[in-house]
Design a protein around this nucleic acid. Structure first.
Lengths: 127, 127
DNA sequence: CAGTATCCATTTGGATACTG
DNA sequence: CAGTATCCAAATGGATACTG
């Protein structure tokens, strides 16, 4: 992709409110979004299935998270007007591409969170 | 680093509270952490310099963010006991490695946030 | 089943005043 | 200069009750 935009996105200047890094973190930084994407990456799922598989999520937060992802075009919501109604969620193409950078982040976590925990312990034992 | 832990970190099972993805997002998901890392990646900086370069950050939040990063071993804090005191912050090796997955995320943003904005507009115009 | 609506406790973070 | 301490408004999110 080309960055021909009027705002040249200086690589070292991400401290504006509308910078891409800020926006993506606002998108995925909450408690449930990445978990929903993670589950849906295994395949489509109904609302109740998502709720079961994501331990601890409330109905309100799951709905809210799914609405946000749908609004952003990362998740597709399909309603089958049966009785009772069946609603199936799935990742869009855009949603699927997000998994790659998320996995990079997860990989960093796996490699470094041991050191991070050790550093925290050392820090807390100071003085 | 080796992952010899008793919890094998199933790749498709990131819905536990202590999963690596959750922990790294708790770490970088807040408003200021990635911005601090972004600035420090250009080189060490004093407290006042960070404050100037990160538009909108309050003294309290900058301090809080830096303390958290220091505790995690991602940022090094050096005090020069001059008068007035001079404090210089810099990334540790671990802190520097975090820049790579962050850049991947930023790259995804740059490539997709146009589509996301379009999708939001379409969503909001529905009904 | 898949939500919506409401209430409320906790968390987050900005503003302000003060300090070694 | 580089903080700390305190107060308080707004946002976040869980619990509960209700619905097409």
């Amino acid at each position: 992709m080309v960055t021909t935009s009027a705002t040249p996105l200086l690589p070292g200047d991400p401290y504006q409110a509308d910078c891409p890094t800020r926006r993506i973190l606002d998108r995925i930084g909450d408690r449930w979004t990445v978990l929903v994407i993670g589950v849906l990456d295994h395949g489509d799922a109904r609302f109740s299935e998502l709720r079961r598989r994501i331990a601890g999520v409330s109905q309100k937060m799951l709905t809210q998270t799914l609405r946000g992802l749908e609004r952003d075009g990362l998740v597709r919501r399909t309603v089958y007007p049966e009785v009772p109604v069946r609603v199936v969620y799935g990742l869009t193409e855009a949603g699927r591409t997000l998994q790659e950078p998320l996995r990079a982040l997860q990989q960093w976590s796996i490699e470094h969170l041991g050191d991070v925990s050790a550093s925290q312990q050392a820090y807390d034992l100071r003085d």
